[in-house]
């Protein structure tokens, strides 16, 4: 077992983990952060996307022990309590989700994309989200959601 200290959604956690524990499993089973989900085993789906020190990563592809000393933001830490982050609000407004399973990862990827490019074109959005798979929406409304979020966050068209 290895001792780790990780800040997740603003709270610092200390834990002993087996080296083989994936970050996503530690978040879900160790911390009960079940908003972040697992959709595949080949790093394709992106459902497990979280921010690690501010950058999007697939939490199935990071060992929990590797996150030692870092800061993680999950979908559950994106906004406080019942508040809505602009990206969350935009996904609701534009019907950017159906079953909602890809949504935590999709939202975190969109947050990451907009942090780097506050005013993306449609092509940039589509390319920027290609590490996240959705089987319900056909992406049409996800793209609209990200455009709408960019507006809410002050990007201009």
């Amino acid at each position: 077992m290895h001792h780790i200290s990780v800040t997740v959604d603003g709270t610092r956690y200390e834990a002993d983990v087996e080296p083989r524990t994936l970050l996503v499993h530690w978040l879900r089973e160790g911390l009960g952060k079940v908003g972040t989900v697992v959709g595949c085993d080949t790093s394709n789906c992106g459902a497990c996307t979280v921010l690690l020190d501010g950058s999007s990563v697939k939490s199935c592809s990071v060992l929990a022990v590797q996150a030692d000393g870092s800061e993680i933001t999950t979908i559950q830490g994106l906004s406080a309590g019942d508040d809505w982050h602009p990206v969350q609000a935009a996904f609701k407004e534009c019907h950017g989700l159906q079953c909602g399973y890809c949504t935590p990862g999709m939202v975190m990827s969109a947050v990451d994309l907009l942090a780097e490019n506050p005013n993306p074109t449609e092509d940039e959005i589509r390319d920027g989200l290609h590490g996240n798979l959705c089987r319900c929406t056909g992406y049409h409304n996800i793209v609209k959601s990200v455009q709408y979020a960019a507006d809410l966050m002050g990007g201009t068209k």
């Binding site: 080296p19 085993d41 080949t42 790093s43 590797q66």
Partner: peptide, 26 residues
């Protein structure tokens, strides 16, 4: 060796490889 792990982690998850020691160079 485990670098960014983006090639190794899928191998580990699918148990296509089961190394005894991981040396994390990050």
């Amino acid at each position: 060796v485990l670098g960014g792990g983006q090639s190794l982690m899928p191998v580990l998850r699918l148990r296509m490889g089961e190394p005894s020691v991981i040396v994390d160079t990050t």
